[in-house]
């Protein structure tokens, strides 16, 4: 009975985090982006500085008609948002925020492997949406998504592998237990490559070629309306939470911090995640969208060689210090 309660509680907490954190990041994006552009952002919804803007947006989306185009592959079309969103919920289960047993949804031995595999599934949602919409723009978006997935999954896996090599384990709590502060400079290239590749996989600007609203009118999401469209948006922000959380635990040492080690580890994890989320927004505001060929070029000629170099470096250092 106690076990059941424990599981239910953990699932509930993860679910609540899954529902609230993306909204917090979304709201932060509204405000940060506005101020970076000399604006104020939402000011009305909820009364105080538009804190309830995303709730209002959600209500608006819920009121809209859920349209499925006549030529669409109905079942796939309707399933796609769920496929895009749910993997991030599963990944969230495996990210530890503190050193204790209670600070992680579920300890998975092959954590890194699980996390990256499941994150890859999320992109499938966009592919399904692009194909099932029976719309040329959607199809283009889907194709670009596929190309982007192929290009950026590789450096992401390689850099994650580099960390796993350094720690000698693929369990995420295991990696964090083995973490030392000097891993930071040692794995810095890997961290940057992982983060950039993750951004590209989330299709966040400046890597938002597959959605490119000014070009292929939101790509795979062209035909979506109402709640299903909102789910895609939610998936993007949940993706930011997951990417920042993963970068934090894999490269930035998660709950390790210069002080406050006991009991406050989770604060460090959340803090680092929040800072990374800010960087995600910052990059979005600052840089224009890459062209499709530039996107591919960046992945194959820069990120992949860099991640390979990182693996070589990790291997050499690992052998030397043993």
């Amino acid at each position: 009975m106690n076990d059941v309660l424990d599981v239910i509680l953990r699932l509930l907490i993860v679910f609540v985090v899954f529902l609230t954190f993306p909204l917090i990041i979304g709201q932060t994006e509204h405000k940060v982006m506005a101020h970076m552009q000399g604006r104020l952002g939402p000011m009305y919804a909820g009364g105080f500085h538009g804190w309830a803007q995303l709730i209002a947006d959600g209500v608006k989306f819920a009121q809209k008609e859920d349209v499925v185009p006549a030529g669409a592959d109905r079942r796939i079309f309707q399933l796609a948002p769920a496929v895009a969103l749910l993997p991030y919920l599963l990944v969230l289960l495996a990210i530890p925020i503190g050193p204790d047993e209670g600070a992680v949804g579920q300890v998975i031995d092959a954590g890194v492997f699980f996390v990256l595999a499941v994150m890859g599934v999320g992109v499938l949602g966009s592919l399904m949406a692009g194909w099932a919409s029976a719309n040329k723009f959607s199809l283009l978006g889907g194709l670009r998504t596929a190309a982007q997935l192929l290009a950026y999954e590789l450096p992401m896996l390689l850099t994650a592998a580099s960390v796993a090599m350094a720690a000698g384990t693929v369990s995420i709590p295991g990696i964090l237990d083995a973490f030392e502060w000097w891993w930071l400079p040692w794995q810095i290239v890997g961290a940057i490559v992982f983060f950039v590749a993750g951004l590209a996989e989330l299709q966040r600007p400046p890597f938002d070629m597959p959605v490119a609203d000014s070009e292929i009118i939101f790509g795979a999401y062209t035909e979506y309306t109402g709640l299903r469209f909102a789910l895609f948006l939610l998936a993007e922000y949940a993706g930011i939470v997951v990417l920042c959380g993963l970068t934090t635990v894999l490269f930035l040492g998660g709950w390790h911090g210069p002080w406050g080690a006991d009991g406050l580890g989770w604060v460090w994890t959340l803090l680092k995640t929040a800072v990374l989320a800010f960087v995600v927004i910052w990059l979005r505001v600052t840089y224009p969208r890459l062209r499709e060929d530039q996107l591919q070029k960046l992945a194959w000629t820069l990120l992949v060689p860099l991640s390979l170099a990182q693996i070589a470096l990790t291997g050499v250092v690992k052998v030397v210090i043993q």
Partner: peptide, 21 residues
């Protein structure tokens, strides 16, 4: 150039916004 771009957006964020309410 990339760093300069980041600096511009960050600096703008710390300034008072020009929106007239």
């Amino acid at each position: 150039g990339l760093a300069k771009g980041l600096a511009v957006t960050l600096r703008t964020m710390t300034k008072k916004s020009v929106t007239a309410q």
